[in-house]
Design a protein around this nucleic acid. Structure first.
Length: 901
DNA sequence: CAGTGAGCGAGCTTCCGCTTGACTT
């Protein structure tokens, strides 16, 4: 018998197992072990038909969640259950944060330890032997309120995601998604692009000078910039706003600026030819910089991006390998705290590598800057009580470089401040026209590098200087004479705000308390996968689709998509965790509303208010709109002759960033609306050019009518066969396609039979009687005799009837009818003649058994007969959601039992 | 965004946060 300890991570289990010895068995949960069902396939049949089944949250009954053990966790749970049976005590040692507390409760509820088995909650914040031993000695109970807070978080995210996403499916495009985190992330990227689109460049000029403070033999040159004219500051980039205007053009006061044009700057330069200069002021300030805090997830992702060019996801997977192999501590953390052992190890290395003069008298500590930090772990640092230098690890490649980064940052965090001086010198003189002109030079010298010797953070913004950048200025005193060696007018332009990169977006999200260390990298993945955002180099560019989605959310779900939403949710969760607020009440307010707050349910029910077309239309200017269509973005504007001619449309290339779609660019696109058409050749008979292009119904060929063709003339068109592509279609094929329908021949009674392609594929037509063909090639090949043979058969109703079964499985145990597998319009399905059930994701024709088929049919049967009656004109007769048959509200799944004690 | 005639099995997409392998080539 041993004591069973369950932590979250297998690597952690190994380490802790070593500390605890043979009286303990240490296992891991491998993250969450239960969750709301992910999709329909994982939703148990007994809740599927409930009105709230899709959510798996009983919104009518205290928002009770319905949890399942995901398929891939089942065997692991079985293993843990077995271990519990053999244990004489159970320690739930999951992380000490909201999610960890919930995992502990789920474990307890799912493993169902036998009565009498001592169960403890054990917590620690660092994986060091003393910390673990202390944790075992000081267990506590599960904090029910904290679990409630986690469930509130989980349920809110489910309601948000699974209620708002379907709105997007209906109004924008199928398969899209919305969520508390991803929608705000997308909005940030869109908002930044909007700023760039509004941005108007300002140009301004100044003078660059090189002064000499020395003599002819001993020049001491230094650079300076024009600062003021007659005591009025010269405008710089920061003095302009995004519209290109000076922020303040007041005639007096500190904000007054003079905006120099090129002519102004050149005139000024030529008026300074004979000027003598003297030093007006010298201002020296001490420079002091403290080391950066040790890495947490976001800062590691940022620096790995800047210094090593790694994406967030690459950084995390490299770090994961370092962690699993015992090189670093846990990499998903929001804490910058180092254990005492780590501080000691870092200080030892400082002394060894840099000497005692770089070591502060007492250890440095770093308070968390992250507001909602849960601090379940240490900072990311080299593992162990003594640090291995990168060379000692034997690592190579990305792992080596990332380890080195983490190691340097950790060591540097225990070093002394860098100190030095920053100096500003003002130099003045009189121009020929009598104006008083002042230049400014700034310098920085570092007298003691301290931590900068080990580690300097890189910068994103090119206009900023690295912390170790130095500019030396000569030692000057007020009144000293200097001469101008060079003087040149320089033009500058203001720059639009830069786009987010992965790293800067993650930083922004963290600053706004949105997302968690374990999700930052995947948030980026989500908005990329949905097509909301794409990468151009390292920049994240929003697609027009994102503009459409974000606008819909802003106008119809303003509260949910506000930047403050998560922060206020966190406040509420804190109240729930403190036992001061109630989960169901808060969720009720979110879902059903209260007072001034309109609930989510109301918002998603009143869909009529949402004008999908309006949401997808963005005016560009000059009467041109950008529209987000099902096939991508396109521009729509008045035709070349303007007026009331029908509008012209043109596709917008997928990789054209929204801020580059100017009116001029839109007009350019509209001038050539053909888009990506391919010239196939000229028709041998008509001489007209034939082009192939993509249309609403897929690729097709069409002929180009001459400009003088009458307005009523319509070009012939023809869809490409599935076997053809735009790039490879030949002239011969194109001609045949344009000549369709092909006349196959004439029936006995004199009716013409034609062959052509249609909405449902290839078919024959004789008067009003049509018959489907099995392949497109038959349109060209079929003979009159074959066609007659088809018409000799009775008309087949539906395709299914025409296709032979793919497999016969035997008789259904319920209906006794033979069960066969067929291929249908919606994919493969099984049928017993009366009921049809589509195969699920995991089923294949090869693998399906009679048992599985019977299961699917039984499920199908439960939902009642297909709406057979519906015939013509009954296109929409949605069987009224059998609302009457509400089985007496079943009590929510057994839960929380474990928590009462 | 080209305009082309039927009739007929729906079912699924999606959230955020915790964690690793198991898959394929």
């Amino acid at each position: 018998m041993a004591k069973l300890v369950i932590v979250e991570s297998p690597a952690k289990a190994r380490t802790i197992g070593g500390y605890l010895g043979s009286d303990y068995v240490v296992e891991s949960s491998i993250g969450h072990i239960r969750d709301l069902p992910n999709n329909a396939a994982d939703t148990p049949a007994k809740i599927k038909d409930k009105p709230w089944g899709r959510l798996a949250v009983d919104v009518d009954n205290g928002f009770e969640p319905y949890y399942v053990v995901p398929r891939d966790k089942k065997s692991h749970i079985a293993k843990l259950k077995k271990l519990v049976k053999d244990a004489d005590a159970l320690y739930l040692a999951t992380d000490e944060d909201r999610e960890g507390e919930a995992i502990a409760w789920h474990l307890l509820d799912e493993l169902k330890p036998p009565k009498g088995l001592p169960v403890h909650r054990m917590v620690f914040h660092e994986i060091t032997k003393p910390a673990i031993l202390a944790a075992v000695e000081n267990p506590r109970e599960i904090n029910d309120d904290l679990v409630e807070a986690q469930e509130a978080r989980r349920i809110l995210d489910r309601l948000y995601g699974y209620e708002v996403s379907p709105v997007l499916w209906k109004k924008v495009m199928s398969g899209l998604s919305a969520g508390r985190v991803q929608s705000v992330a997308t909005r940030l990227v869109v908002d930044r692009e909007r700023e760039r689109m509004k941005f108007r460049v300002a140009s301004y000029w100044d003078l660059d000078a090189t002064f000499d403070a020395g003599t002819g033999h001993d020049p001491r040159m230094f650079p300076a910039k024009l600062y003021s004219i007659d005591d009025v500051r010269v405008a710089r980039g920061a003095d302009f706003d995004n519209t290109g205007e000076l922020v303040s053009t007041g005639s007096t006061g500190a904000k007054r600026r003079v905006h120099l044009s090129r002519a102004d700057a050149e005139a000024l330069a030529s008026g300074l030819g004979d000027t003598t200069y003297d030093v007006r002021s010298v201002e020296s300030k001490p420079y002091r910089r403290s080391p950066y805090a040790p890495f947490r997830t976001t800062t590691l992702q940022q620096e790995a991006s800047r210094k090593l060019g790694m994406s967030a996801s690459v950084t995390m997977s490299v770090a994961q390998r370092l962690y699993e192999n015992g090189f670093i501590t846990y990499m998903r953390t929001d804490s910058t705290t180092l254990s005492d052992a780590a501080v000691g190890a870092a200080r030892d290395q400082v002394r060894e590598l840099y000497g005692a003069e770089y070591l502060p008298d007492s250890p440095r500590t770093y308070a968390s800057k992250v507001k909602n930090a849960q601090e379940a772990h240490e900072a990311i640092r080299p593992a162990g009580d003594t640090f291995r230098t990168p060379a000692q690890t034997g690592l190579s490649g990305e792992q080596f470089r990332l380890y080195e980064l983490i190691w340097m940052r950790t060591v540097a965090s225990q070093m002394k401040d860098a100190v030095g001086n920053s100096v500003t010198i003002r130099i003045g003189g009189a121009a020929a026209d009598g104006r008083d002109v002042v230049f400014s030079a700034s310098g920085r010298t570092i007298t003691f590098h301290g931590f900068l010797k080990a580690y300097v953070e890189d910068i994103d913004d090119a206009s900023k200087r690295r912390d170790d950048a130095e500019t030396r200025l000569p030692n000057l005193t007020q009144g000293a004479a200097v001469s101008a060696a060079t003087l040149s007018p320089e033009g500058h332009e203001t720059k639009p705000p830069s786009r987010y990169t992965e790293a800067t977006l993650i930083k922004e999200l963290e600053d706004r308390e949105i997302g968690r260390p374990s999700t930052y990298a995947s948030i980026i993945g989500t908005i990329l996968n949905r097509g909301y955002v794409y990468k151009k180099g390292t920049a994240l560019v929003p697609a027009w689709l994102a503009f459409s989605v974000v606008r819909l959310l802003e106008e119809h779900f303003p509260r949910q998509v506000s930047y403050e939403f998560t922060a206020s949710m966190e406040d509420v969760l804190d109240e729930i965790a403190g036992g001061r607020k109630d989960r169901a009440t808060e969720l009720g307010e979110f879902y059903y509303g209260s007072g001034d707050v309109v609930g989510l349910k109301t918002l998603v029910t009143d869909l009529g208010e949402i004008d999908a077309k309006e949401m997808a239309t963005f005016p560009i200017g000059d009467g041109i709109d950008l529209r987000v269509g099902r096939y991508g973005p396109y521009v729509e504007g008045p035709g070349p002759d303007g007026g009331d001619a029908s509008p012209v449309r043109a596709n917008v290339p997928d990789d054209l960033p929204p801020d580059e779609l100017t009116v001029a660019k839109a007009k350019e696109l509209l001038a050539n609306p053909a888009g990506e058409e391919q010239v196939v050749g000229n028709h041998p008979d008509t001489g007209l050019q034939i082009v192939a292009k993509n249309g609403r119904f897929g690729p097709y060929v069409t002929e180009v009518l001459p400009d003088d063709a009458p307005k009523s003339a319509k070009p012939r068109t023809g869809s490409l066969f599935k076997s053809m592509t735009l790039d490879t279609v030949t002239l011969e094929q194109a001609v045949k396609l344009l000549d369709l329908p092909r006349i196959v021949g004439t029936d006995e009674d004199g009716t013409e039979i034609t062959a052509q392609n249609g909405r449902y594929g290839p078919y024959l037509k004789k008067g009003t009687d049509s018959r489907s063909l099995t392949s497109e090639d038959q349109i060209f090949d079929i003979t009159l005799d074959q066609a007659k043979a088809i018409y000799a058969q009775p008309k087949q109703r539906g395709r299914g009837a025409a296709t032979p079964p793919l497999k016969e499985l035997g008789n259904d145990p319920v209906s006794g009818q033979p069960v066969i597998v067929k291929a249908g319009r919606f994919g493969e399905y099984v049928t017993d003649g009366e009921y049809n059930a589509t195969l699920r994701k995991d089923d294949t024709v090869e693998s399906i058994t009679l048992e599985r088929a019977a299961e699917l049919l039984a499920e199908r049967r439960e939902r009642g007969p297909a709406k057979k009656a519906a015939k013509k004109g009954a296109k929409k007769a949605p069987a009224k959601k059998a609302a009457a048959k509400k089985t007496a509200a079943k009590k929510a799944p057994a839960k929380k039992t474990a928590k009462k004690a």
